[in-house]
């Protein structure tokens, strides 16, 4: 059992790939935004890559351990300490009953992940332990963890002293600029050639009005193709309106003139076009970007995007870990 001493800004239980199979009832998958770092944390402590762990956003929690176990912290650097002594990231560490693990504010990146040997044992809802805050589903009582709560943990068999080699970790940017891959479609043909060119060649600033449902971007105006302007009236009056349709996760959803990247807790459908889609392999970058940082988008083919996801998956296996 693990006691939440301080909750941090928004610390939530997530598993991977999350709540899959309920998109037609309006449920998003939820799950960790940076699933690369998340999976690495799990394999470090001997768990399956998708076992339930903690996602810590911007400011991490303080946890009191009531049992001996092994933990690993990956992703953003929140300067973790164990009883006041600095802990390394990307490494499995033994923790004794009575010790206190404390994370601070993110120095680099935005989201840290804490895996505990065995994995968190909160009840599954619709096949997943992930937290979907907006609707109060999953996690503990449907929301981010709160001080005073106690998290149940399955029995685990972790080994301390395992390390993710540096070459296999995601490289969190220190210059506040990110190159994010996108695939064209489904509605790229609603944007004119100048608009497509402008999207791919402009700086886009990540707005502070972003959360696990959507990442708002600030940048230049969009211009539209004929198709967006002359259309049956049931599409709606704005050029970016379309008859309500299903949204892919990662969609760059154009609400009027504001692009919003629909992320893990995003809506399943709606009436705006999605000219581009961020593929799964680039989600870790979204998870580690802070508001105010700059995105540039680079178009890749569907096949390239699938190869990238495969490459990340191949890295997140226990055989790649080394011992101290």
């Amino acid at each position: 059992m693990i006691e939440i001493v301080k909750a941090g800004l928004e610390t939530s239980i997530q598993d991977y790939p999350g709540r899959i199979g309920y998109w037609n009832q309006g449920f998003p998958p939820s799950g960790p935004m940076d699933s690369w770092s998340f999976r690495m944390a799990n394999i470090l402590v001997g768990n399956a890559p998708g076992a339930a762990g903690l996602e810590c956003q911007f400011l991490g929690p303080t946890l009191g351990f009531q049992q001996d176990t092994v933990v690993a912290i990956t992703g953003a650097d929140m300067r973790p300490t164990l009883d006041g002594i600095a802990l390394p990231l990307w490494q499995s560490v033994a923790v004794r009953a009575g010790q206190v693990l404390a994370l601070g504010a993110a120095r680099l990146g935005a989201r840290a992940y804490i895996a505990i040997a065995g994995g968190i044992a909160n009840p599954e809802r619709l096949g997943s332990r992930s937290t979907f805050h907006k609707a109060g589903v999953g996690g503990i009582d449907g929301h981010a963890v709160k001080a005073g709560q106690v998290l149940p943990v399955f029995d685990g068999t972790g080994t301390a002293g395992l390390v993710v080699p540096e070459a296999l970790r995601p490289e969190i940017r220190t210059d506040r600029r990110w190159e994010i891959e996108v695939c064209a479609g489904p509605n790229d043909d609603w944007i004119d050639a100048a608009g497509q060119e402008r999207f791919l060649s402009s700086d886009w600033k990540l707005s502070a009005k972003s959360d696990r449902t959507g990442f708002r971007l600030e940048g230049p105006e969009w211009t539209f193709a004929e198709k967006a302007i002359n259309k049956p009236k049931e599409h709606g009056s704005l050029p970016s309106n379309i008859i309500d349709h299903g949204y892919p996760l990662g969609a760059i959803n154009l609400a009027g003139q504001t692009p919003i990247i629909l992320v893990n807790d995003g809506p399943s459908m709606g009436g705006f076009i999605n000219p581009y889609t961020v593929p799964s392999a680039a989600f870790w970058k979204l998870g580690q970007a802070k508001p105010g940082e700059i995105f540039r988008f680079r178009q890749v083919s569907v096949e390239e995007a699938q190869d990238m996801a495969r490459a990340i998956k191949a890295r997140c296996v226990a055989g790649n870990l080394v011992t101290l």
Binding site: G185, I243, P248, V302
Partner: peptide, 17 residues
Amino acid sequence: FLPAGDRYVLIEFGNEM
């Protein structure tokens, strides 16, 4: 058939309600 990233495809049957 409209590709939508690395794991989705959107199938449109028409453009009216």
